[in-house]
């Protein structure tokens, strides 16, 4: 069921509508604003990117999103407002472009922890309680016994906070496949802790 404004958007975006060009220009302008806002929200991944470069990224994201929207707008099913459906495309474009930017700007000289190194905080310390020490030792051993790909993904994403899309680019993969590796690694590690008498209960409350 389409609301009146969504119907208006869909109608005007159809080629042949007398206000087609105006609607396309209007949509593009809004997509640019959404892209700028989203890029600013993800600024932490963008490093020292300057204003014009940020604007250029926003334009590119809006351009690419507009192409997808115009190609698929007849598929809009009305499960949301048209604007929410359209903004999804520009959010995905921004997400991908931010990841590519972050991946390209990484250099071997970056003063950051290596993606594939288990952080020191997983090493038991003298002050830890006995249960904590046991948990850490089991976890560290189990991490070392993951498959190569699971180890690589778990250490990078879960322990070193490497964005999942950046790692996907690094490994020539995609988010869904990397997430599957992460999920399998986590399940294996949970299983190992449980088998050793240290089960990790699922948190019921929404995050």
């Amino acid at each position: 069921m389409h609301d009146a404004e969504s119907k208006e958007w869909i109608g005007r975006l159809r080629p042949g509508h007398p206000r087609h060009q105006d609607a396309v220009a209007r949509l593009h302008a809004v997509l640019v604003r959404v892209a700028v806002h989203e890029l600013s929200r993800r600024r932490g991944q963008l490093g020292a990117i300057a204003g014009p470069e940020l604007d250029d990224l926003a334009q590119q994201a809006a351009d690419d999103a507009l192409v997808s929207i115009l190609r698929r707008h007849e598929d809009f099913r009305g499960l949301s407002r048209f604007t929410t459906w359209a903004y999804k495309f520009v959010i995905f474009e921004v997400s991908g472009k931010v990841a590519r930017h972050a991946w390209r700007r990484r250099t071997p000289s970056d003063d950051e922890p290596a993606w594939d190194e288990v952080p020191d905080r997983l090493t038991p310390r003298p002050g830890d309680r006995l249960e904590q020490r046991e948990q850490l030792e089991i976890l560290s051993t189990a991490i070392g016994e993951l498959t190569d790909r699971q180890h690589e993904v778990f250490v990078a994403v879960a322990l070193n906070d490497i964005p999942i899309d950046v790692l996907a680019l690094q490994l020539g993969s995609n988010r869904n496949a990397i997430y599957k590796n992460l999920f399998d690694a986590r399940r294996t590690l949970r299983g190992r802790l449980a088998a050793a008498g240290h089960p990790v209960a699922e948190e019921e409350a929404a995050a």
């Binding site: 404004e5 208006e8 809004v30 959404v34 806002h37 989203e38 929200r41 604007t83 921004v94």
Partner: peptide, 20 residues
């Protein structure tokens, strides 16, 4: 999660935009 948060915020801020 990041995409979801971005879309939620975009829909809140810019959801009422009209075609003209």
């Amino acid at each position: 999660k990041a995409d979801h948060e971005g879309l939620l915020e975009a829909a809140r801020r810019f959801g009422d935009e009209k075609p003209g």
